[in-house]
Measured scan of single mutants.
Amino acid sequence: TTKIQIRLADGSRLIQRFNSTHRILDVRNFIVQSRPEFAALDFILVTSFPNKELTDESLTLLEADILNTVLLQQ
């Protein structure tokens, strides 16, 4: 498993454990389930350093190389 910290656009944080085989789409779905107010918003996930937009949501967390990292919601 891996721990992902997500810094949300409103300044708050979410921390969740995922399997390395989960997909970026699963992280997006977790955000929307945790904070339904973001469901209607068009947002992207970005790595904190170096900044990289995670546009291919079909990638696993392992394939995207974002295990144990911080993601930013923009």
Score class of each variant (00 low, 15 high):
residue 1 T to W: 07
residue 2 T to P: 00
residue 3 K to H: 09
residue 3 K to N: 11
residue 3 K to E: 14
residue 3 K to W: 06
residue 4 I to R: 09
residue 5 Q to L: 07
residue 7 R to S: 10
residue 7 R to V: 14
residue 8 L to V: 03
residue 8 L to S: 01
residue 8 L to R: 00
residue 8 L to P: 12
residue 8 L to E: 06
residue 9 A to I: 15
residue 9 A to G: 00
residue 10 D to T: 04
residue 10 D to K: 02
residue 10 D to L: 03
residue 11 G to R: 01
residue 11 G to V: 05
residue 11 G to M: 11
residue 11 G to D: 11
residue 12 S to R: 04
residue 12 S to F: 08
residue 12 S to T: 13
residue 13 R to M: 12
residue 13 R to N: 06
residue 13 R to A: 08
residue 14 L to N: 06
residue 14 L to Q: 05
residue 15 I to S: 11
residue 15 I to E: 15
residue 15 I to N: 08
residue 15 I to T: 11
residue 15 I to M: 12
residue 16 Q to P: 00
residue 16 Q to F: 01
residue 16 Q to R: 10
residue 16 Q to K: 14
residue 17 R to W: 08
residue 17 R to D: 14
residue 17 R to K: 10
residue 17 R to H: 12
residue 18 F to I: 07
residue 18 F to V: 06
residue 18 F to L: 00
residue 19 N to Y: 04
residue 20 S to C: 12
residue 21 T to R: 05
residue 21 T to Y: 14
residue 21 T to L: 05
residue 21 T to G: 11
residue 21 T to A: 12
residue 22 H to G: 03
residue 22 H to A: 15
residue 22 H to Y: 04
residue 23 R to L: 00
residue 23 R to D: 04
residue 24 I to P: 02
residue 25 L to F: 08
residue 26 D to W: 07
residue 26 D to S: 05
residue 27 V to Q: 03
residue 27 V to Y: 07
residue 27 V to L: 06
residue 27 V to C: 10
residue 28 R to G: 05
residue 28 R to H: 04
residue 28 R to W: 01
residue 29 N to E: 11
residue 29 N to D: 10
residue 30 F to D: 10
residue 30 F to V: 10
residue 30 F to Q: 00
residue 31 I to C: 03
residue 31 I to S: 01
residue 31 I to Q: 00
residue 31 I to T: 02
residue 31 I to A: 11
residue 32 V to K: 04
residue 32 V to G: 06
residue 32 V to A: 06
residue 32 V to P: 03
residue 32 V to T: 07
residue 32 V to R: 04
residue 33 Q to F: 09
residue 33 Q to V: 02
residue 33 Q to R: 10
residue 33 Q to S: 12
residue 34 S to E: 11
residue 34 S to M: 11
residue 34 S to Q: 14
residue 34 S to C: 07
residue 34 S to N: 12
residue 35 R to F: 13
residue 35 R to L: 06
residue 35 R to G: 01
residue 36 P to M: 05
residue 36 P to K: 00
residue 37 E to W: 00
residue 37 E to Q: 05
residue 37 E to T: 06
residue 38 F to P: 02
residue 38 F to G: 06
residue 38 F to E: 09
residue 38 F to C: 09
residue 38 F to W: 07
residue 39 A to R: 11
residue 39 A to M: 09
residue 39 A to V: 02
residue 39 A to C: 06
residue 40 A to D: 15
residue 41 L to R: 09
residue 41 L to G: 10
residue 41 L to E: 13
residue 42 D to S: 08
residue 42 D to M: 07
residue 43 F to R: 03
residue 43 F to K: 11
residue 43 F to S: 03
residue 43 F to Q: 00
residue 46 V to A: 07
residue 46 V to E: 11
residue 47 T to S: 14
residue 47 T to I: 14
residue 47 T to D: 09
residue 47 T to Q: 13
residue 48 S to W: 10
residue 48 S to Y: 08
residue 48 S to P: 10
residue 48 S to M: 11
residue 48 S to I: 05
residue 49 F to C: 13
residue 49 F to S: 14
residue 50 P to Q: 12
residue 50 P to A: 11
residue 51 N to P: 13
residue 51 N to A: 14
residue 51 N to F: 14
residue 52 K to G: 00
residue 52 K to I: 01
residue 52 K to H: 09
residue 53 E to L: 08
residue 53 E to D: 08
residue 53 E to K: 13
residue 54 L to V: 11
residue 54 L to C: 10
residue 54 L to S: 04
residue 55 T to S: 09
residue 55 T to N: 11
residue 55 T to V: 10
residue 55 T to I: 11
residue 56 D to R: 03
residue 57 E to V: 08
residue 58 S to A: 02
residue 58 S to L: 03
residue 58 S to F: 09
residue 58 S to T: 12
residue 58 S to M: 07
residue 60 T to W: 01
residue 60 T to R: 06
residue 60 T to E: 07
residue 61 L to F: 05
residue 61 L to R: 07
residue 61 L to G: 05
residue 61 L to Q: 00
residue 61 L to Y: 12
residue 62 L to H: 12
residue 62 L to Y: 12
residue 62 L to V: 12
residue 62 L to K: 15
residue 63 E to A: 11
residue 63 E to D: 05
residue 64 A to H: 02
residue 65 D to V: 03
residue 65 D to A: 01
residue 66 I to R: 03
residue 66 I to W: 14
residue 66 I to E: 04
residue 67 L to P: 11
residue 67 L to Y: 06
residue 67 L to R: 13
residue 67 L to T: 15
residue 68 N to V: 03
residue 68 N to T: 04
residue 69 T to Y: 12
residue 69 T to Q: 06
residue 69 T to F: 00
residue 69 T to H: 05
residue 69 T to E: 12
residue 70 V to K: 15
residue 70 V to D: 09
residue 70 V to E: 15
residue 70 V to T: 14
residue 71 L to E: 15
residue 71 L to D: 07
residue 71 L to W: 09
residue 71 L to H: 12
residue 71 L to G: 05
residue 72 L to W: 15
residue 72 L to V: 14
residue 72 L to T: 12
residue 73 Q to M: 15
residue 73 Q to G: 02
residue 73 Q to R: 03
residue 73 Q to Y: 08
residue 73 Q to N: 04
residue 73 Q to F: 12
residue 74 Q to H: 13
residue 74 Q to M: 08
